[in-house]
Amino acid sequence: MEKKKEINIIIADDHQIVIDGLKSLLVQHSHIKIIGEASNGLEAIDLIEKNNIDIAVLDISMPEMDGVEATKIIKEKHPGVQILILTMHDGSEFIHELVEIGANGYILKNRGKEEFVEALETIAKGQEYLKGKVLNILVDAVRKPKQKAVQFTKREKDVLRLIIDEHTTAQISAKLNIAHSTVETHRRNLIEKTGVKSSLGLVRYAIENGHM
């Protein structure tokens, strides 16, 4: 059996019972290492600055600094750290804002262990994670008035389609027979043209503007 890639994570939640529950869930997944625990966004950022972290698992409602503000700062200062939002908040305003500022995944606390592990492994591969009710909330945005149409080149459309289909940079490069750097250039151009901040934002833009 192929050895799974080790994933270093931190968990930030102001309820210790939640952190303890997540630790219990991950006992059978030795490739996922909990490097540290935090009770607010400030502590989470401190842990990231002192350790080699792949993914920060953040709740939204926390004292001193909430998950939204923490996500903004982490994405600005530590863009290589991926963000998984784990929360009970299923309001569209939270989901939309966190997608816009660069969260890589959003999962509700009432989901099962398998989905939590799947989310971590998906994000660790450089992909985005949106499923179930969270994805449905974004799809509902299709009913809203569309933004002014943005013009994409044919190649940008190809790259956007593959991003929507959850392909990594390496997979897009292979499928389109172009260099990794060219894929990243197209991705940056798409982000600049649409005014979003991440690949997850591109998915939301595509949903809202009929590119699915």
Rank of each mutant, 00 (worst) to 15 (best):
A124D: 10
K144V: 01
S173M: 06
H186F: 14
G36P: 05
V27M: 14
K193G: 02
S39T: 14
G210M: 07
E43F: 07
K5E: 15
R204P: 05
T169Q: 12
G195K: 09
S24K: 12
L138F: 00
L120E: 04
M212S: 05
Q127W: 03
K109D: 10
E49N: 15
G210H: 06
N51L: 10
I83Q: 10
V183E: 08
S173A: 15
G91P: 00
T169D: 13
I11M: 07
P79V: 05
R188M: 11
E118V: 01
I55G: 00
Q147T: 14
K144I: 03
M1H: 07
G80P: 00
T168F: 10
T87L: 06
R188T: 10
A149M: 04
E115I: 15
I191E: 08
K197I: 09
I137V: 12
T87A: 08
I19Q: 00
I107Q: 13
K33D: 06
V134D: 00
N52E: 15
S61I: 12
A70M: 02
A56F: 05
L120F: 06
V27L: 14
L176Y: 02
P63D: 08
L190S: 06
N51E: 13
E156W: 03
D59V: 13
K131S: 15
M88G: 11
V183G: 02
I85Y: 09
I163G: 04
E64M: 10
Q16V: 12
V142T: 06
K72F: 07
I85P: 13
I55Q: 05
G91C: 02
T153K: 07
I207A: 12
F116C: 04
E64V: 13
I74F: 03
E166C: 06
E2P: 13
D54T: 06
D158S: 09
S24W: 01
L202R: 07
I7T: 09
T169F: 05
L108E: 04
I34F: 09
V150Q: 14
N52K: 14
G21M: 02
I60M: 11
H211Y: 04
E156L: 11
H186K: 01
D66L: 02
R187Y: 04
Q151E: 15
A44V: 09
V139F: 04
Q171F: 08
D54Y: 05
M88R: 10
N189I: 08
N209Y: 06
P145F: 08
E69D: 14
V57T: 14
H186R: 03
E64H: 08
I60Y: 11
R143T: 11
L98T: 09
G91T: 03
K131H: 12
R187K: 14
A174W: 06
E69Q: 15
Q171V: 11
L135E: 12
G201A: 12
N40T: 11
K125V: 02
T182V: 14
K197N: 15
V134W: 00
G210Q: 10
M212G: 03
A12Y: 10
E128W: 01
S181M: 02
R111P: 05
A119H: 00
D14Q: 03
I55F: 10
A170V: 05
V117N: 01
G80K: 13
E128Q: 06
K72D: 12
I45N: 10
A149P: 01
I172N: 06
L86F: 15
K75G: 05
S24G: 14
I7L: 11
F94M: 11
I17Y: 03
